Amino acid sequence: MERSRIAVAGASGLIGSALVRSLTADGHEVVRLVRHEPRSKSEVRWDPEGGRVDAAGLAGCDAVVNLAGAGVGDRRWTDAYKARIRSSRVLGTTALAEAVAAMDEKPRVFVNGSAMGYYGETGDRIVDEDSPAGSGFLPELCVEWEGAAAPARAAGVRTAFVRTGLVVARGGGAWGKLFPLFQAGLGARLGDGRQYWSYVSLHDEVAAIRHILDTDGLAGPFNVTAPTPLTNREITAAMGRVLHRPTLFAVPAPVLRAVLGEMAGDVLGSARVVPKRLLESGFTFAFPDIESAIRAA
């Protein structure tokens, strides 16, 4: 992509901040959507849960990327927090999609966040973008989240969804919590460890988003996960090897359910997700296996 003006919602999050660093390093002008009063021309005011965005601030943007949303793993899933998770994604996406659709000079592409949680519990079954949505809170959320982008798509804007896996990074997300435990020698498999985890390095996550932004014709859902999902038992062993720490423990499923509540189902659930469409589009993973992804982090 030639040097462009690109709007990013969720620019302060793990993925968003890494994407902004990558874009600015290559000379792109990044406009951050913020909740506070803008402090510079590079910020645009929005209220995702209130469904409002300063559409005038998006003028001249060649692309809009929406990665905003309350953290799924940040706290226990009370009814109130589940409502916040939903509203921060669905209402924010609706506001951005409607703003994009109403622009006289529309962006070339709208990339919206999503998650591999779309597929729900898959067991040992391999799933790709042709597989149907699962059932439960996260799959239903992802379906509604992606559906909220309909106004942009209906207005003729190329619209893509990034169904992200577990991001291997030190700075946040699930792995941000795992690294300190493993470094302290407290790394453990979760439950029986047979559940599949579909992971992706932070580097490849950002590279995949940029690949979708840059490649004309790429629209619809894209699983952003490494090509070979592994079980939690295999990933636990790999963490131990790379960090040179023992992995002797296991956290029983009942303990996880007692501590995490409904969210334990996501930790203990199996998601064997592969990036079929991303690979078909010519994307190459820099860190396709778990040990290289852990080292990169």
Results as ranks from 00 to 15, higher is better:
residue 50 G to D: 07
residue 51 G to A: 13
residue 99 A to F: 01
residue 46 W to A: 09
residue 140 E to Q: 15
residue 255 V to H: 08
residue 63 A to K: 05
residue 258 A to D: 10
residue 229 P to K: 01
residue 86 R to E: 14
residue 215 T to V: 11
residue 147 G to Q: 06
residue 80 A to C: 01
residue 131 S to T: 01
residue 65 V to M: 09
residue 246 P to N: 06
residue 101 A to P: 04
residue 238 A to F: 09
residue 47 D to W: 01
residue 168 V to I: 15
residue 267 V to W: 04
residue 150 A to I: 09
residue 159 T to V: 10
residue 174 A to G: 11
residue 111 V to T: 07
residue 117 G to D: 01
residue 58 L to N: 04
residue 97 A to E: 00
residue 84 R to W: 00
residue 176 G to P: 13
residue 118 Y to V: 04
residue 43 E to K: 08
residue 18 A to T: 13
residue 2 E to S: 15
residue 26 D to N: 15
residue 287 F to P: 00
residue 153 R to W: 03
residue 280 E to R: 15
residue 27 G to Q: 09
residue 195 Q to A: 12
residue 202 L to P: 11
residue 273 V to R: 10
residue 28 H to L: 11
residue 205 E to L: 12
residue 109 V to N: 03
residue 58 L to A: 08
residue 101 A to K: 05
residue 247 T to Q: 08
residue 22 S to P: 02
residue 75 R to V: 14
residue 219 A to F: 03
residue 181 L to W: 03
residue 67 L to A: 08
residue 4 S to N: 10
residue 212 I to P: 14
residue 138 L to T: 13
residue 148 A to M: 08
residue 167 V to R: 01
residue 112 N to E: 02
residue 219 A to E: 14
residue 74 D to A: 15
residue 190 L to A: 10
residue 174 A to N: 13
residue 75 R to W: 04
residue 167 V to S: 02
residue 99 A to T: 05
residue 234 E to A: 15
residue 260 L to V: 12
residue 48 P to N: 05
residue 108 R to I: 01
residue 127 V to C: 12
residue 120 G to C: 10
residue 268 L to V: 10
residue 158 R to E: 13
residue 28 H to K: 14
residue 12 S to D: 12
residue 161 F to N: 02
residue 25 A to W: 04
residue 114 S to N: 05
residue 63 A to T: 10
residue 114 S to F: 12
residue 263 M to C: 07
residue 103 M to P: 02
residue 270 S to Y: 12
residue 123 G to D: 11
residue 291 E to M: 09
residue 205 E to V: 08
residue 224 V to M: 05
residue 150 A to S: 14
residue 61 C to E: 02
residue 218 L to S: 07
residue 212 I to M: 12
residue 184 A to F: 04
residue 236 T to L: 10
residue 257 R to K: 15
residue 194 R to N: 12
residue 175 W to D: 01
residue 293 A to P: 07
residue 132 P to Q: 01
residue 271 A to E: 12
